Simulated assay, not measured.
Amino acid sequence: MKYQINKSPTQQTTSPAGRRQALQRLGALALGGAFAAAPLRLLAQGSDRVVRFILPVGAGSGVDTIVRAASVALGKALGHAVVIENQPGAGGIVGTATLVKAAPDGMTLSVVSNNHVIYPSVYKSLPFDPINDITPITVIGSTPMVLVVNPAKMPATNVKELVALLKAKPDTYNYASSGNGTILHLAAQMFLDEAQVRAKHIPYKGVGPMVTDLIGGQVEMGVLALPAIQAHLKSGALRAIGVGGNARSAAAPEIPTIAEQGLPNYNMEGWFAVVGPAKLPASEARRIQAAVAAAYATPEVKEAMAKQGNTINPGTPEAAALYFRSEMAKYAQLVKKAGVELQ
């Protein structure tokens, strides 16, 4: 069985009082934990509006790490300060439900991942249509996924040893995910299928608690995006077994791919894309796409993406729309093969 996941009117504030009000509003957001290091000089130039990036994931996840690394550059390119709001829950449905209700004026955006097109295959009903209730703007790029274990709970150091442990004790070990039917669930389940072994699935409400319990030893293994766990791999809190792509990551070349370790059909990577609410004007979608491309092309962001192991290649809104539909059809088949129970 082969699993293939492809990579891929501003308000003018001219008076001192107006400027103070703008700064006070932004200050309140910052104290709420949502402000993401945006350039305040934009306010001095007269713009008191902010662009909200609603992320349907928790802080510290792969998508969160990728967006926060570019937040300052995004603010400069978009011409407005950027606020990042994490709204995790239900595999990403909570945050996306907020996005689809926003005005299609380009001031509320989101960055979604593979999960967005998996929803229809996992949930019997959704509070939104993943295709018709959003405007695809650009698929920014892809990120490596890594199969990891807790070294204190599992002595395996490679795929062969891990498979041997799982075959010796079927359904004894647990694997974590960020939620039932999420890309992290599918990635782990597909590894088990390819290796013809069994383990128990423990779904969590997001990446944060998943990583916490992996490190704590409550669960033994899982698949995560490389940017979310680099520090834990370096510290030794987690051990990498293999990378899910078809080539090693330049950010962690010492980690072999799962494919080169005896499971040649295993190829799983994550992708991330900017979307807006439905009915966003085409001209606005193109403007935002150009700004995102410019932000991720700045030297400081390119360096950050390289360190995280991400591949960046922002496409057009038209290409993003086609990609979403093709990925949705692909995942419908993969979810069925993985035997994911509908929620």
Rank of each mutant, 00 (worst) to 15 (best):
I84E: 07
S110K: 11
L55Y: 01
R52V: 11
L43W: 09
A28S: 14
T96L: 14
V122I: 11
A69G: 06
G91Y: 08
D48W: 05
G33I: 12
V63Q: 14
S121M: 03
N86V: 13
A81D: 14
P104I: 07
D64P: 06
S71Q: 05
P130A: 03
P136I: 03
R49W: 08
Y123C: 12
V111S: 09
D64E: 07
Y119M: 09
G32I: 05
A73L: 06
L29D: 12
L29G: 09
P56S: 14
G95M: 11
D105N: 12
A69W: 08
L74Y: 07
V82H: 04
P88F: 09
P136V: 01
V83C: 10
G18K: 04
P136D: 06
Q24R: 14
R19E: 04
R19Q: 12
G60L: 09
S71T: 04
L40P: 04
V82Y: 05
D105H: 00
A69S: 06
T138L: 06
A36N: 04
V50L: 06
A38I: 10
S121T: 07
T138N: 01
T65W: 02
D48R: 01
Q21I: 11
L74T: 01
M145H: 03
A69H: 01
D64V: 08
T143R: 10
A28Y: 07
A69N: 08
T98Q: 13
L43F: 11
G18I: 06
S142N: 13
F128N: 01
I54K: 10
P130L: 06
F53I: 07
Q87F: 09
V51A: 06
